[in-house]
Amino acid sequence: MLRRLALTAVVSLAALSAVTPGAAAATGPLPLPLPRPLPLTLPVLQDDARTRLTITVSDTGDPAAEGSFELRCAPAGGSHPVAEQACGRLEELAGGSKDPFAPVPADALCTLQFGGPATARVTGTWQGRHIDSSFNRTNGCEISRWNNLIPVLPNVR
């Protein structure tokens, strides 16, 4: 989107500077020369501001959901099976007040339920910061934390 806007601005400036001298010649000389347009530089997104995550999932019981997947956002890509939906979920979570990658606090009261042996590890960059988080489904808090990141993490039940 930003590239398209910058490109439109550059093309518009080029068109205006090409048309103005011809128009001035038809009406007579201008008293002062036209200023040259300033060069427009595109902002460069730094790699650490982009979302680039490696998600490693195991013991889900579903071979298609297991393995190591790359996820890139803006634009969505990588080997993640549902990259667009995963990037959309991460974008939703970016506006929230809770960090979806934060571990469960040590003093949290969690239900004693077992959601299965699935585990996941997420490493990389999200919102310009380094991520290295582990996930499991060993109690109610961990299950909730995992489910909050679906479809970044697979939907295992």
Rank of each mutant, 00 (worst) to 15 (best):
L2V: 15
P37K: 00
P100T: 03
P151I: 06
R157K: 12
E92F: 11
T27W: 08
W126P: 01
R52K: 06
L149P: 00
C110P: 11
D62H: 11
L45A: 14
D47H: 10
G88Y: 06
L32F: 11
T8S: 14
L2N: 12
F101A: 01
E92P: 10
E92H: 11
P21L: 09
T27P: 00
P31F: 04
V57S: 01
A26R: 13
L2P: 10
G77Q: 05
A15I: 13
S144W: 00
H80D: 04
W146N: 00
A94E: 08
I55P: 03
A74C: 08
G77P: 03
L32Q: 08
G124L: 03
A120H: 04
P35Q: 05
G96C: 04
L2D: 14
R3C: 10
L7E: 15
M1H: 07
K98S: 11
F69Q: 00
P31K: 01
K98M: 03
E84I: 11
V82A: 14
S79F: 08
A83D: 09
P37F: 06
I55F: 08
G88T: 09
S17E: 15
L16H: 08
S17I: 07
Q85W: 06
R52I: 02
H80Y: 04
E84D: 14
G116D: 03
I143S: 01
A118W: 00
A65S: 15
L38W: 06
G116T: 07
G28T: 09
A15G: 15
Q113A: 15
G140K: 02
G67I: 07
R36P: 01
A23T: 12
N139P: 04
N147I: 00
P105L: 08
R36A: 08
Q46D: 13
A118F: 01
A49V: 10
P37D: 05
E91M: 02
G116I: 06
L13Q: 13
L13S: 14
A6D: 11
T27I: 10
V10A: 14
R121G: 09
S144T: 11
W126S: 00
G67Y: 02
N139I: 03
V57E: 01
R121I: 08
L16D: 14
N147G: 02
H80P: 03
L7Q: 15
D48F: 14
A64T: 14
G115Y: 02
P117Y: 10
G88S: 15
A106G: 12
